[in-house]
């Protein structure tokens, strides 16, 4: 990929990340950390691409590890975040009732 374009993408993505988080209440710190943990689980896509290109045994083994770990990151991250946010939902409901 063209280096300068990549650098622009990096810069804009970094600003996006900072802006998205800027005024987040302290109560959401942990769920947000968990949510962003899920999002970088997208690395599984990279793992799939390298495993799909792998030829030698060593490449296949390491590629398999990449997909395995990446998928664990994505699915585990999703379930953990979902369970955390579930707690928010129930506490909101009790507030509404009260």
């Amino acid at each position: 990929m063209e280096g300068w374009i990549a650098l622009y993408i990096f810069m804009l993505a970094a600003f996006t990340g900072i802006e998205v988080i800027r005024r987040v209440p302290a109560i959401l710190h942990t769920p947000l950390m968990s949510g962003s943990n899920f999002i970088h689980g997208i690395v599984v896509v990279g793992g799939m691409v390298v495993l799909g290109m792998a030829d030698t045994t060593a490449e296949i083994v390491v590629g398999f590890i990449a997909v395995f770990l990446g998928a664990g990151n994505a699915v585990g991250g999703y379930v953990v975040t979902d369970r955390m946010l579930e707690m928010f939902k129930s506490s909101d409901k009790t507030k509404d009732k009260g």
Binding site: I9, A13, I21, H29, L32, M33, S36, I39, H40, G46
Partner: peptide, 17 residues
């Protein structure tokens, strides 16, 4: 690029966090 964007957004947001 999707990996770059998702990764860097999390990287920057994570640093802020």
């Amino acid at each position: 690029p999707a990996l770059m964007i998702a990764g860097i957004v999390v990287g920057a947001a994570g640093t802020m966090l």
